[in-house]
Design a protein around this nucleic acid. Structure first.
Length: 678
DNA sequence: GAGCACTGC
């Protein structure tokens, strides 16, 4: 897991010196392997795996479980006859780096016996018997191999993170394990909830492996903090002045907060001047450009102290060496999903005790550390949840439902979820899939639905792509779908260059709506730059988002054959493209005094100020998503003609519903009168 | 006139 990587690579040596170096190299690997906490458990572990089909492994960070256990299994003969050992990770980087490490330990070329498989990148071959992959990737593999027949062992690693994909895998794997008696399943988790995993998997035994970490002292505040940002700044300076050397990690909830905190720290340090030692203040969050992110890994110069102000990205995704002090205000931004309204929101909430403990652990990686919690011990005990609500209960499940349906699981309401999602979430997902024509009235997958399931995008987007066939504009629709499935904003808008950024954005605006703008951006970037960072920077476009859009588009285009859609261009006929976007008819809104009303749920919503249609306020709109922030906003909207709805979704809309001034509940004339009065 | 934690297929 978090072992420092070996820097050198084994090479074929000819001279005596070379062979000496190679010997010491492998000796160092063996010494390292044997010093890992998991090593003494090898025999007992293999015996337990032999005796039980499903085993829960409780192993803390640094135990070596992720790199060593698959190798033990391999040496024990679990890959005989070309069978594979699969090990899932929640993150791409982990799948890549762990497999590279294991390949090195086994002295094989990455991609041969040991490989990894992540989206956009398959580094495996026919020889691969030890395969690390993202959990989402294994989920997709179910589509081609529903019983995972080529695997003898599946290891679900980092199970405690409870990602959406991991949770679905739990149900599916538990199911196939029943009839595949030769399949071994290992569920590896940190010390958390292992009893729950055990009881879910029919009381599978729990095998415990200790970790290797330094102690972290935890300090609470005596009284609650009214202003946690100010409290952070004060705490950092206090540590800086009174505590021995060691870098500081501060957990905040988002970009804005992080920027504010960094500015405050810098200002106070300036004021204190030479009275204090140098304090290097560095922000880190996922959307920060890579070159600025990289700065946090620079070693701290002697005499100075580094303070990293981070989002949750520093909780699991990246580890920073040299952190001795952690400051934890106890909050994080969390996505939630309201299935009654179909609306997402991102809200600052108190984090869970599990999350707080994970944060504290970041102080104990290199030496004994200290964690300062900016809340009371009482709050920790009584006001915080034990664990974070699993993602499956906080998200739209359209995609998941479509996938499960295509795996032949018809009764989703009774699917064996470890923690079932809200009933309404499943119902809304089924309803939307039915509306899109992916399911028939019996809830069975249609031919269209089967094709939709092949595409790794939101069902509404896959429907749009399939509908583009009929209108002969799949080239453009593929681009729009790819751009929409990039969650991040495509436009870069730094605080100090707001005017420039807004002007740059205006240059990309074309009529029709945000979908058409996105299509235009993609085309311009492709023509203007060949995706150079420089060009994107000058035009206030997020390079990383564009790169991702290109990857997604290429993947989708590669799947067109499989779903039998011809790739062809609308040749400038934008009307076609806008009509296809009407595939989103479930997300129709109509102008209504001051804002918009969704057609199906009569909800009041507003065009997002960042939209190209913010000032135009067309009568009919289709929105890509509904997000609650300060208001109910439609993000990414396109202007449509209401008659298109009847053309695209006659099964869904009755013409009466679409009459311009009608209000569903009252006769037409009254509705009109009311509107005029209003 | 707002402001997007983090992942993943």
């Amino acid at each position: 897991e978090e072992e420092p990587g070996l820097q050198t690579h084994p090479e074929e040596g000819r001279s005596g010196v070379h062979s000496y170096l190679i010997k010491t190299f492998y000796l160092s690997i063996i010494i390292n392997q044997r010093s890992l906490p998991v090593f003494p458990y090898r025999q007992d572990l293999l015996a337990a795996i032999d005796q039980h089909q499903i085993l829960v492994i409780e192993g803390e960070t640094g135990s070596g479980k992720t790199t060593q256990i698959p190798q033990y299994l391999l040496e024990e003969g679990y890959t005989a006859g070309g069978m594979k050992i699969g090990c899932t990770q929640p993150r791409r980087v982990a799948a890549m780096s762990v497999s590279a490490r294991v390949a090195q330990e086994m002295a094989v070329k990455l991609g041969n016996e040991v490989g990894y498989s992540i989206r956009f990148e398959d580094c495996t071959s026919e020889r691969t018997v030890l395969k690390y992959m993202t959990d989402g990737m294994l989920l997709r593999e179910f589509l081609t191999e529903p019983d995972l027949a080529s695997y003898s062992v599946i290891i679900i690693d980092e199970a405690h993170e409870r990602t959406l994909h991991t949770d679905i895998l739990f149900g599916l794997i538990k199911d196939i394990a029943r009839f595949r008696s030769n399949l071994k399943v290992l569920v590896a988790s940190a010390t958390l909830d292992t009893e729950r995993f055990s009881s879910f998997f029919d009381d599978a035994p729990v095998f415990r492996i200790p970790g290797r970490r330094f102690p972290v002292d935890i300090y609470y505040t005596k009284a609650p903090e009214a202003d946690y940002l100010e409290a952070c700044v004060v705490s950092v300076l206090q540590i800086h002045v009174t505590q021995p050397p060691g870098d500081i990690l501060v957990f905040l909830t988002g970009q804005e907060e992080i920027e504010a905190c960094c500015e405050l720290l810098q200002e106070r340090c300036r004021r204190l001047g030479s009275k204090i030692a140098e304090l290097i203040v560095l922000p880190i969050y996922a959307n920060l450009p890579s070159d600025m992110q990289a700065k946090i890994f620079n070693p701290t110069p002697p005499g100075a102290r580094k303070v990293v102000v981070a989002t949750n990205i520093a909780e699991t995704s990246l580890t920073i060496d040299g952190i001795i002090y952690v400051i934890d205000p106890g909050f994080c931004k969390q996505k939630s999903y309201n299935a009654r309204t179909g609306m997402e929101s991102l809200i600052v909430t108190p984090c869970s005790r599990a999350s707080a403990n994970q944060r504290a652990g970041r102080a104990g990686r290199v030496a004994a550390g200290k964690c300062f919690r900016l809340y009371t011990a009482w709050a920790f005990k009584h006001e915080m949840e034990e664990t974070t609500v699993p993602e499956i209960q906080r998200t739209n499940l359209g995609n998941v439902v479509l996938l499960l349906k295509s795996l032949g699981i018809n009764d989703l309401i009774h699917f064996d979820f470890m923690d079932p999602p809200p009933h309404e979430t499943l119902v809304l997902a089924l309803e939307q899939l039915y509306a899109l024509g992916a399911l028939n009235h019996l809830g069975e997958l249609t031919k269209l639905g089967r094709r939709m399931a092949e595409l790794p995008v939101d069902p509404m987007l896959s429907k749009m792509i399939l509908a583009s066939e009929q209108y002969k504009c799949s080239e453009e629709v593929l681009t729009i779908a790819a751009m929409l499935s990039v969650n991040n904003s495509i436009f870069y808008r730094p605080k100090d260059k707001v005017v420039h950024a807004d002007n740059a954005r205006m240059n990309f605006v074309v009529p029709g709506g945000d979908h058409m703008v996105l299509l235009n951006v993609y085309t311009q970037v492709r023509m203007g730059s060949g995706y150079s960072t420089q060009w994107c920077y000058e035009n206030f476009i997020q390079f990383r988002s564009m790169k991702r859009a290109r990857d997604v588009r290429e993947q989708l285009e590669g799947l067109m054959d499989r779903i039998e859609v011809e790739v062809c261009s609308a040749d400038g006929d934008n009307m076609k493209i806008r009509k296809v976007s009407t595939g989103y008819f479930y997300h129709t809104a109509r102008l209504s005094k001051g804002g918009y009303k969704t057609v199906k749920h009569q909800q009041t919503v507003y065009v997002h100020p960042n939209s190209s249609l913010f000032e135009e306020q067309p009568r009919w709109l289709i929105y890509h998503e509904l997000v609650f922030t300060t208001k109910e906003f439609m993000r990414q909207v396109i202007e449509i003609d209401s008659s298109w709805l009847l053309e695209v979704a006659p099964h869904y809309y009755k013409s009466k519903e679409l009459e311009d001034s009608s209000s569903k509940k009252m006769p037409r004339k009254m509705g009109k009168a009311r509107e005029e009065l209003g």
